[in-house]
Write a protein that binds this DNA or RNA. Structure first.
Lengths: 157, 157
DNA sequence: CCCATTTGGTTTCGTTTTGCAACTGATTGG
DNA sequence: CCAATCAGTTGCAAAACGAAACCAAATGGG
């Protein structure tokens, strides 16, 4: 199985689009939930399995993929001890992604009055909504921004 | 086809977690890229097909799902005219998610000097990185926040 | 108005991915 | 030492996906 290169750029998506690159890594049904649970304290195989409900063979595969791509590591422990998973810096850096997914869900995926979990800071205060801003401080939307594609062939200046 | 309830809560993920709810809607290989392209001006079936490279039958299915869940609509046009797709308010509200995915990709999914597209505002200025902040203005990470789960049974106060 | 082309799908079929359950061999805890 | 737990594997069935062929309704040039 997996006869050719394991985890390289799939190439079936625009190779210059950072959204596509990220989606290639975490854009499946489980990876983001695994990251979410890691951020919420999950460390062991069974932690992840129980919290997500993912099938165990798929969990194995996903954990390996996330480790291979440097979002998770297994921390060192004395000989023959089990090695818990932990987020790398790159993994932790997905925090803004998880937060925006959460905030969208809170706004659009629950009925009014339906109970859901809330992300709070050290003081127990709800984390404020994340909103793209121009340098000037004015809010940005998809209508007031655009994607500038790289000139082909340009790599360094 | 589609013999039973079309698009309801899958229930195989924590029903009180907004991240899970959102992932249930857009947590597959294509939906986020479709949303991305819609934000970048894609309107027609072939727009989406050409930009993403998705198989046409799957595209049909995804567009229907996104419409069913209220992220896309087909705008009205005079009798028997083709109805282009457009983002709803809920769909546009995924903008912060797309932006954080993009920014993570820019930071971690490209080699130094490798060309990629950039999101800019009306002035052509790059959109600043999105970072969760406490109300006080101090930056937040997964280490300085926690998820408060709802007390079971509580629906309204 | 006519016909060729394009658009927006649908159908069929083969491949891949996912899920489930049973199983295994280390690890741990009492 | 022994039972339970952990971290996976393995085998198989079900679901999702992809490629290509097909089709009817729009479009558009002459």
């Amino acid at each position: 199985m997996a006869r050719d290169a394991e985890g390289q750029s799939p190439a079936w998506t625009d190779p210059t689009c950072p959204v596509a690159r990220t989606a290639d890594l975490v854009g499946d049904r489980w990876s983001l939930l695994i990251i979410r649970d890691a951020m919420d304290g999950a460390r062991s195989f069974t932690d992840f399995q129980q919290r997500t409900g993912i099938a165990r063979n798929i969990l194995t595969e996903r954990l390996r993929k996330l480790v291979a791509h440097g979002l998770l590591t297994q921390v060192d422990a004395p000989s023959g001890r089990r090695r818990p998973y932990a987020l790398t810096e790159a993994g932790k850096d997905l925090f803004p992604v998880i937060v925006t997914l959460r905030q969208w869900g809170e706004r659009h995926a629950f009925e009014a009055g339906e109970a859901h979990s809330v992300l709070v800071d050290d003081n127990g205060t709800r984390v404020p909504d994340l909103l793209p801003m121009a340098t000037s401080g004015s809010p940005l939307t998809s209508d007031t921004t655009s994607v500038r594609r790289p000139e082909s062939g340009a790599t360094l200046t």
